[in-house]
Design a protein around this nucleic acid. Structure first.
Length: 613
RNA sequence: GCCGGCGUAGCUCAAUGGCAGAGCAACCGCCUUGUAAGCGGUAGGUUAUGGGUUCGAUUCCCAUCGUCGGCUCCA
């Protein structure tokens, strides 16, 4: 654990930022980074051999590998990738040296005269101010080229000395995808080949295993297999149908969410799905968010918009009465369903949809209450996330951007409150300077799932804009009107996305409290059916979700099916159990505790439900 | 939205310019079973939709819709 205490003039924030940057820099200086970057050059060499007229763009190393973008005479096929990969391995085995050379812009232009993308890059380097990715930089960058084999590339490096440092058995091309030149949708679409490289074959296999594992846990796959949710052509893209199993899980999530909110001083509100255009004009959404909103519905000559956010409604509830400083903080919570236009290409299972339910809340407080309110939101959020098995949480703190509204002094206050709350919560965080919304700074919380992948869930956003626009007030101790602070907060984000993350986190094997079916009663023969039904009734009365598998199947088949449905408890009932008034427990894990009394099983189940395991 | 791939029974997947098939699931029987699939039978299709080429299209071409991998954008 790093010492996080401030030292001298160096702020805590600075330390953290430095620590995180050095992690990135560490990678950029590693041998693995060189291997990947060099492998991408080898790939370009192989591609140019195959397509001599190809235009090359850029080919960096990235987090899990590398890519290279090409402008090619035709679309690549999977067979091309196999061929290119095979050729790459040959090139690697040739033991090509990587030779660095510094040249002038003039020489570079001559060398790459047939490569328009390179010429554009050279232009950027020549003028300065732009690095090879087109990002602004103050550095004066020398123009360097690297030659390996028959391929010379404009490149900053670094590279391996020789391809002998690359393990040909630890190199693999993964897929082809379209990518805009310089990420700009107005520029040409190039073909990007993704690949990866490691130092050893074992590491590559480990990576591929992880990819395979992620594929197996894909929420879209499990959603179908476990009958949790679906989408439907006739209903429309990005609109989710929650099936009974998924809906039961959502119900349990919401029940817990409700209980926790009530216990923590929130008031529930419910608001409509549409609102008049005036509302959205006042809120500013028609000004800055219109491209994400659906076309209006006209009712008696008035335009109504389907809501993309809940905040204007909550504000109107606040404004429905005169508020005293004594009333604050006010915390309005709503699982509010919103609709946003998303481009068809970005939709993805439950993770990115067009209609979703935010677990939304708006906090209104006095300036003096603000630090405590942030503290509260943060610790409340962490405790709820923990209940879902997410104990590894980290944060992004995003501060004032160039364009912003609100008094800079208020921004500074808010940013400080956010930062100190993070410190008190002991959360590791990263600073995204200038990354806040125009209306306020924010904290985003991200969690790590069972596969170590990070997902952003919660967001805690200050808003200096809406209270102003809506003219929100409270009467202070001095008898004068004052403007309240407003904080938006989504804890799980959206029910859809959270559910998707949860499915993948648990691999479909939900803890007992969430499992749509908690126990399956498995009678061995028909003569055990009555006893099974009697038990089922009793378990249901005790609040358990159970079924009897009464099919004319072998016990083995029933176990197999319950196992595949990831039911946590299988209760086998045969002559012995019936006689002794017992059940024989088999767990989803394969663990087989065996026969126990009905009371024992109930106590065990209740315990695990309470403990959320 | 853009580039590319894909779309065959409820699900997972075959096949071919010339009668569209399997396993699982469903349904009907038989079996009455001890910790991951008992056996037999029946039914199930305008091959996503709409055009075109062809004597003939599920197969080839075009468009639309959906979906997958990315890009861009984001809860």
């Amino acid at each position: 654990m790093r010492d996080l205490s401030p030292q001298g003039a160096r702020s805590f924030l600075f330390n953290i930022k430095e620590a995180l940057m050095s992690k990135q820099e560490e990678y950029e200086h590693s041998q693995l980074y060189r291997i990947r970057h060099s492998t991408s050059h080898i790939m370009a060499e192989a591609v140019l051999e195959k397509f001599p007229t190809a235009k090359v763009a850029i080919g960096p190393a990235i987090e899990d590998g590398f890519y290279y973008d090409f402008d090619l005479p035709r679309s690549l096929t999977p067979e091309d990738l196999t061929e290119i990969e095979a050729r790459m391995k040959e090139l690697i085995c040739e033991g090509q040296a990587f030779v660095r050379q510094e040249i002038t812009a003039q020489q570079a232009k001559e060398l790459f005269k047939d490569q328009p993308y390179k010429l554009e890059l050279i232009g950027g380097l020549e003028q300065g101010g732009l690095d090879e990715d087109g990002n602004p930089t103050d550095e004066r960058i020398p123009i360097t080229i690297y030659t390996s084999g028959h391929f010379t590339d404009l490149c900053r490096g670094p590279h391996v000395q020789n391809t002998r440092e690359i393990n040909p058995d630890a190199v693999k091309l993964l897929n082809v995808a379209g990518a805009y030149w310089r990420g700009d949708e107005k520029r040409p679409m190039l073909q990007r080949i993704y690949g990866t490289a490691f130092e050893t074959k074992e590491q590559l296999d480990g990576y591929l295993w992880k990819m395979e594992e992620a594929r197996k846990r894909d929420h879209r796959k499990l959603g179908k297999e476990l009958d949790l949710f679906s989408q439907n052509d006739e209903v429309g893209q990005g609109l989710i149908l929650w099936h009974p199993n998924g809906a039961m899980i959502r119900h349990e999530i919401e029940r817990y969410w409700d209980d926790e909110h009530i216990a923590n001083g929130y008031d529930f509100v419910y608001t409509p799905h549409i609102g008049r255009s005036n509302l959205w004009e006042t809120s500013g959404h028609l000004g800055f968010y219109k491209e994400n909103m659906y076309s209006p519905i006209v009712i008696e000559d008035q335009e109504y918009y389907i809501k993309p956010m809940n905040c204007p409604f909550h504000i109107q509830i606040y404004k429905s009465a005169m508020r005293s400083y004594r009333d604050l903080p006010i915390r309005y919570a709503e699982k509010g369903t919103v609709y946003r236009y998303e481009r068809s290409g970005v939709l993805h299972g439950l993770m990115r949809v067009r209609g979703f339910t935010q677990d939304d809340a708006h906090h209104f407080c006095r300036p003096d209450q603000m630090p405590a309110e942030i503290d509260f939101i943060l610790s409340f959020s962490l405790s709820v996330l923990r209940a879902f098995g997410f104990s590894e949480v980290s944060a992004y703190l995003s501060t004032m951007p160039q364009k912003s509204v609100g008094d800079p002094a208020l921004w500074a206050d808010a940013e400080q409150a956010l930062e100190e709350a993070l410190k008190r919560a002991g959360l590791p965080y990263e600073l995204d300077a200038g990354g806040g919304a125009f209306y306020g700074p924010k904290i985003d919380l991200k969690i790590k799932d069972a596969l170590g992948r990070e997902w952003q869930l919660s967001t805690i956003q200050f808003d200096f804009n809406l209270p102003e626009r809506f003219g929100m007030e409270y009467i202070g101790e001095d008898g004068q009107p004052h403007r309240p602070y407003m904080i938006h907060r989504a804890l799980l984000g959206s029910m859809e996305r959270f559910f998707g993350i949860l499915i993948e986190h648990y691999g479909g094997a939900f803890p007992v409290w969430l499992a749509p079916k908690q126990a399956m009663l498995i009678p061995i023969a028909d003569r055990h059916l009555d006893y099974a039904y009697e038990l089922a009734k009793r378990f249901k009365q005790a609040g358990l979700r159970v079924s009897v598998d009464a099919r004319a199947e072998r016990m083995n088949a029933k176990i197999r099916d319950a196992q595949n449905a990831k039911v946590p408890y299988m209760l086998v009932i045969g002559d012995r159990e019936m006689e002794a008034g017992q059940v024989a427990l088999r767990r989803r894990s394969g663990e087989n505790p065996g026969a126990m009394s009905v009371e024992e099983f109930l106590a065990l189940a209740k315990q695990e439900i309470v403990e959320k395991i």
